[in-house]
Nucleic acid binder design. Structure first.
Length: 537
RNA sequence: GGCCCCAUCGUCUAAUGGCCAGGACAGCAGGCUUUCAAUCUGCUAAUAGGGGUUCGAUUCCCCUUGGGGCCGCCA
C-alpha cells in the first residue's frame, strides 16, 4: 500500500461535477460517481455541478437526459448548478449553459485559438487509412496512435483541401514529454505522451470531442476537483496536455475504482440490471441504494454499516476510498433494502407498495367524487381541508368488487414488513388477501404425516372455535387465546396451526394464521375454512 | 500487442511495522417458532507466489503471477 496523499482543500471554492452523456439510462456506476462528487462537495461546503455531455448528437437523447436527472433527484443527489428537469435551455447556476450542445460558441473560440497558435491542425486522413495504421502498429508491437501524417501540411494546401470540402477533423499536436500527476486516491501516476500520438480534439471548428470539451468546460466552470471513474485515468494525460496548451490550471484528480460485475469486468448490461431506474422499479429504496453505493469503494473505518445521506456527508472522505474495483453484490443490497423497509413507518411503506398492488391488478383506487379538493392550498376552506385530510383513500378489490380503505391495506403490509426484501415482492406475498377463492389442495393443507381424516378434524375444530368468537372480538389476541389451547391438546401444535394457516393463505410460507385471520375478519376466515373442508369431502 | 491501474475470507472491507488478521453480507448449524421471515447464538472462510529491508511484516521495496481499464471522427 502506498502512502496516502492528502488532498489539500485550499481556500479556493470546492467545485465538482458530474458529466454524464445522455446515451443511456442513469447507470448505477454513474450514480455512484455522482454520489461521491456530491458527498465531497457537501463535506467541503462546495458546489456540485451537473453538466450534460451531449456532443454526440447521434446517440444523445432527451429521454435519457430526463431519466438521468429524475433518478439523481430520486436518489437525493441534488445539483447546485445544472439543467432544470424537463426544461430545455433552462438552468440554475451562473456558468451555463450546462449542456454541451448549447456551448458551441465557447468551444469555437478555443478551437480557433489552438489552430491559430499552431497547437492543433486539420487532418484529412480517411478512416481506412487510420485503421490500416492502427493494425500495422499493433502488429509491430507498438501502441496504436496517429503518427502525424497531416501534421506538416502547409497552410495553402490545408485551405485548398478545406475549400474542396474534403472531410477533415482537428488533431492536437501532442508534445512528447513526461506527464506526472497526483491522484488523490492513487498517488503519483506517470505517462509518456510520445505513446499517445496526435489525438483528435474536434470534428470541426464548432464540434469539440470529449477530451477538449471536458477541458474547456472544467476550466470555464471553475471545477476544482475532477472525481470520476478509473476508466478515465488514461484520458488524464491528454487533458493535462490540453490544459497546458490552453494555459488552464489543472484541477485536482481523483479516480474512483470501478463497479464490477461478478466476472470482475466493468459492470455492464450483460451483467443484468444496471440502470437506477430498474432498481427503482424492482422496489429498492433510494436509502438502500445510496448506502450500498457508498460502501462500494469507501468505508468509514469503523464497523458501522448503515449510513444515511446526512451521515455520509459527515464522515465521507476521498482519502478513505479504495483503489481496487468492487463487485456489486446484490445479496447485500437485498439485506440493506430489507433493513430500510423495516425502518419505515408502516403507513409510509404502504404508500410505496400501493403502486405495485394496483399494477398487478389486485386493487384499484376509488376516487371519492364528493371531494372537490384535490390539491388543497391556503385558500381551501377549513372544513373542506378537514375532510380532505381525514378522508381515507378507498380501493376496490377487483376480484370481489368489495370496497376497502387504506387502513386495511396497511394492516396487511404490517404483517409483511419484516418479510419484504424489495417492494415488487409484495404482490406475490399478499395476493391471497385480495381474491375471493384461493387455490388449495390436500398436500398443501397437510402437516407432516397427517391423514386426510386428521386434517378434516383439525379444520372442524378450528371452525368450531372461531364460530364461537364475536365478530367484534375477532382480533389476533382473542383468536390466538381460543385456538392455542385446542392445539396444545393435540400435542403437535402444527397439526392444527399448519392447516389453519394454509387454508387461509393458500401458501407454504406466509404470516401467521392468527394475524391473517384477524385481518380477514370472521366472515372471510370461516368461509376459507369451509372451502378447505370441501376438498376432503 | 502497448501503456496505465489494482491485489486481505465466496463478496464488501478493517488492521498505514508489533495482541489468536477484526466486522458485515452470503453459506452452514442451532435457539425461538405451524411455515416463511425477523431476531439471538455459534461455525466455516483470507493476507496470490518468490525474494529482500527489519528484532518483527497484511503493511515498505523489487520480481513473478493474476485481474482490470484505456488505446474511436463515443463519452
Amino acid at each position: 500500500m502506498s502512502p496516502r496523499i492528502h488532498s489539500k482543500i485550499e481556500n479556493t471554492q470546492v467545485r465538482v461535477r458530474l458529466a454524464p452523456s445522455p446515451t443511456g439510462f442513469l447507470h448505477i456506476g454513474t450514480a455512484r460517481v455522482a454520489l461521491f462528487n456530491f458527498l465531497f462537495a457537501r463535506k467541503n461546503n462546495g458546489k456540485f455541478i451537473l453538466r450534460i455531455e451531449d456532443t454526440d448528437k447521434e446517440r444523445s437523447k432527451i429521454e435519457y437526459e430526463n431519466d438521468i436527472l429524475e433518478n439523481l433527484k430520486w436518489l437525493g443527489i441534488e445539483w447546485d448548478e445544472g439543467p432544470v428537469i424537463g426544461e430545455r435551455s433552462k438552468y440554475k447556476g451562473n456558468y451555463g449553459p450546462y449542456r454541451q450542445s448549447e456551448r458551441s460558441e465557447i468551444y469555437r473560440r478555443y478551437i480557433k485559438k489552438l489552430i491559430e497558435e499552431d497547437k492543433a491542425y486539420y487532418c484529412f486522413c480517411t478512416k481506412e487509412e487510420l485503421e490500416a495504421q492502427r493494425q500495422y502498429l499493433i502488429s509491430i508491437g507498438q501502441p496504436p496512435r496517429y503518427l502525424g501524417k497531416c501534421r506538416g501540411l502547409d497552410k495553402k494546401k490545408v485551405s485548398q483541401f478545406l475549400k474542396e470540402g474534403r472531410p477533415a477533423i482537428i488533431r492536437f499536436k501532442t508534445p512528447a514529454k513526461k506527464i506526472v500527476f497526483v491522484d488523490i486516491i492513487r498517488g503519483k501516476i506517470e505517462f509518456d505522451t510520445s505513446l499517445i500520438g496526435d489525438f483528435s480534439i474536434a470534428k470541426d471548428e464548432n464540434s469539440p470531442l470529449y477530451n477538449l470539451a471536458v477541458v474547456i468546460d472544467d476550466f470555464e466552470m471553475k471545477i476544482s476537483h475532477v472525481i470520476r471513474g478509473e476508466d478515465h485515468i488514461s484520458n488524464t494525460p491528454k487533458q493535462i496536455l490540453l490544459q497546458q496548451a490552453l494555459g488552464f490550471p489543472s484541477p485536482q484528480w481523483a479516480h474512483l475504482p470501478l463497479i464490477l460485475g461478478p466476472d470482475r469486468s466493468k459492470l455492464s448490461k450483460r451483467h443484468g440490471a444496471v440502470s437506477v431506474n430498474q432498481y427503482k422499479k424492482d422496489g429498492y429504496l433510494p436509502e438502500a441504494l445510496i448506502n450500498i453505493m457508498a460502501f462500494l469503494g469507501w468505508n468509514p473505518g469503523t464497523e458501522r454499516e448503515i449510513y444515511s445521506m446526512s451521515s455520509l456527508i459527515k464522515d465521507f472522505s476521498l482519502e478513505r476510498c479504495q483503489k481496487g474495483g468492487a463487485i456489486f453484490n446484490i445479496k447485500r443490497l437485498n439485506w440493506i433494502n430489507g433493513f430500510y423497509i423495516r425502518q419505515y413507518p408502516t403507513q409510509k411503506l404502504t404508500e410505496l407498495c400501493l403502486p405495485y398492488l394496483e399494477k398487478s391488478g389486485l386493487i384499484e383506487e376509488v376516487k371519492n367524487e364528493k371531494l372537490e379538493v384535490k390539491n388543497p392550498n391556503k385558500n381551501t376552506h377549513p372544513e373542506e381541508l378537514r375532510l380532505f385530510k381525514e378522508e381515507k383513500r378507498k380501493f376496490r378489490i377487483k376480484d370481489t368488487n368489495e370496497i376497502i380503505d387504506i387502513d386495511w391495506i396497511t394492516k396487511i403490509i404490517a404483517l409483511y414488513q419484516e418479510r419484504l426484501k424489495k417492494l415488487s415482492e409484495i404482490t406475490e406475498l399478499v395476493d391471497f388477501f385480495f381474491v375471493d377463492k384461493i387455490k388449495l389442495d390436500k398436500d398443501l393443507l397437510r402437516w407432516k404425516e397427517m391423514t386426510d381424516e386428521e386434517i378434516k378434524q383439525s379444520l372442524d375444530a378450528i371452525e368450531k372455535v372461531l364460530s364461537g368468537i364475536e365478530p367484534s372480538q375477532f382480533t389476533k389476541e382473542t383468536i390466538e387465546k381460543s385456538i392455542l389451547p385446542v392445539a396444545e391438546e393435540i400435542g403437535d401444535r402444527g397439526k392444527l396451526l399448519w392447516p389453519f394457516r394454509a387454508a387461509l393463505s393458500g401458501k407454504k410460507a406466509s404470516a401467521g394464521p392468527f394475524e391473517i385471520a384477524a385481518v380477514l375478519g370472521k366472515k372471510k376466515t370461516i368461509k376459507r375454512i369451509k372451502e378447505a373442508k370441501e376438498i376432503f369431502k
